[in-house]
Design a binder for these strands. Sequence first.
DNA 1: CGCCAGATTGACT
DNA 2: GTCAATCTGGCGG
Length: 192
Amino acid sequence: MKFKKRVKLSNKFYARDSKVVAKELLGKILVRVINDKILKSKIVETEAYYDEKDPASRACLNGDLRETMKMGAGIILVYGVHNNWLINFVTGNLGEASAVLIRALEPLNFEGSTKGPGLLTKSLKIDKNFHKNNLLDSNSLWVENCKNKTNFEIAESFRVGVKKDLSIKLRFYIKGNKWVSKKCIKDKNQKI
DNA sequence: CGCCAGATTGACT
DNA sequence: GTCAATCTGGCGG
């Protein structure tokens, strides 16, 4: 009996600069298991967050979120804001605070509203219970490489919704993908 | 302890 | 266009 070769992303993948990880997560497959049902979706929009020198990052605050951001590559960080759960993957080396926010997904084998960071967590039933879980161990949530190579263009812009952004572009999305969040398509905040 | 702000969304004037 | 919902941590009394 032959199993499909699992191509779950490894610790090495996440243990790099969060900007690099954010960019490379585009097109990868997020797998969520709910009661033996496997929901697969493609990651189409991400944002990178850094340590204390990033004014938009929760690492600027003392507390559990900052500590979680230092827990090492592959840890899941769930952050509640404005009545929404936002999911992040911790990146970089142990002790460094950095993470990638998942902003939008394209559902592949199910119906769901996933064009936005708060919406996708609702659709996939991701909440604070996932906080501090590990993508490398979890049997209900992980990320795989895409089997079929698909060509797409990566677009970048400044981050959405943050009051104090850095001067570099840290939001990445698949150009033309209809599941990218509205704000991202409009690029309201983007300066040319 | 109370009140404010924030990486959001949806409902309503 | 405005506003409120919920969680976490900063800050003032």
